[in-house]
Design a protein around this nucleic acid. Structure first.
Lengths: 187, 187
DNA sequence: TTTAATACCGAACATTTTGTTCTCTTTTAT
DNA sequence: ATAAAAGAGAACAAAATGTTCGGTATTAAA
């Protein structure tokens, strides 16, 4: 990809992320984005057809990294409650989120957080499903695996939302402990 | 309230709900709403300042009923796992959702579902919090009550979303059983 | 280093959507 | 019956969207 393209793409991403942290998605105009990104109108539409597509691209970029590293983690440590390992994938995820504080969590705490969370949850779902399939875990037989997978990823995402909205007073390790406490009994 | 106002308000609500089931929120224009509702432009703006306000009003109306009747239910039956009652508030909620199929679940399955779910979850949170406070339940002491409340309402909402997206193959009673199975061990 | 491709700019433009203002008619409550 | 309120409808300004064009600068590849 052309360096110029990379630069403008990044400029647009950054401008958009900044704006999302300030105001709600629906109130952001293309004009504001290109003004802040300092690119021409034509350029914007050459990269993204709509504002929606821009958002999707931003989500893909942001969560691509996080989920990617989490996937690596699962391949070595397993998903979660393999005995009492001090670190679960979920702890890893939370730490990663906290490190990229300014980037990701800023967006999660804004009015448009739901859009990101859905994107996040979709990725999480894949991650967990893989583990369920690979490990052939013996789970609660009365409950469909699909339900359980959704329950885990859903609970996680809701927890993150709760965490961020409460100004992240807990440490990732603390949260991980809580999360295990409400998920492990179910498996 | 004037009968005319009620009528136009309803006409706008219905038109809007119809449109939400067809296309995403951001792509719906005021023009489309008033065309379908068959009201004048001026009239629309006399009732709602913005499209966002319309959405909020619609949410309030839809979930007001459901949560209201659920609240009644909790006052007599308690929140949830008081022994092994065949019906929990959550089952009641699910049944109620299924009954109002065309109204509410249609909206939940559309692209704008997140907006409704957040609204729904907020209401649920209140419901659960009340019960926690009133009953002075002895819950898991290692976990903050706030976390638990959020976990319950969050899991419920995610479950409903999963249910709707999977075309509601399960009965409310079935879902209730699953939900109890993943929540009761935690309390 | 030259060259051809292409990404960008900026300005102008048509189109769409928004939100307001006006007059006139219909409906409502009393 | 009447005054108050609500809606219709058209016309309007303003803002936002999305496209087209010719000219400039950057890039990758020869």
């Amino acid at each position: 990809m052309d360096r110029r393209q990379q630069k403008t793409r990044m400029a647009i991403f950054n401008a958009f992320a900044d704006l999302l942290a300030e105001k709600s998605y629906s109130k952001i105009t293309v004009q504001e984005i290109i003004d802040r990104a300092n690119v021409g109108r034509t350029t914007f539409y050459a990269h993204f057809e709509t504002k929606d597509e821009l958002l999707r691209a931003l989500c893909d970029q942001l969560f691509g990294h996080i989920i990617g590293s989490a996937a690596d983690c699962t391949h070595t440590h397993g998903l979660y409650c393999d005995g009492n390992a001090p670190e679960s994938v979920f702890c890893h995820l939370l730490q990663h989120l906290q490190e990229n504080d300014n980037n990701i969590l800023g967006l999660l705490s804004c009015e448009s957080s739901e859009l990101f969370l859905r994107c996040f949850k979709d990725s999480l779902n894949e991650l967990i499903k893989d583990q369920f399939v690979n490990q052939n875990r013996k789970v609660n037989r009365d409950i469909p695996p699909d339900f359980l997978i959704n329950h885990i990823s859903g609970s996680f995402v809701e927890m993150v939302l709760w965490w961020v909205k409460g100004r992240m007073k807990q440490t990732p390790e603390e949260l991980d402990r809580y999360f295990r406490a409400v998920i492990e009994p179910v498996l």
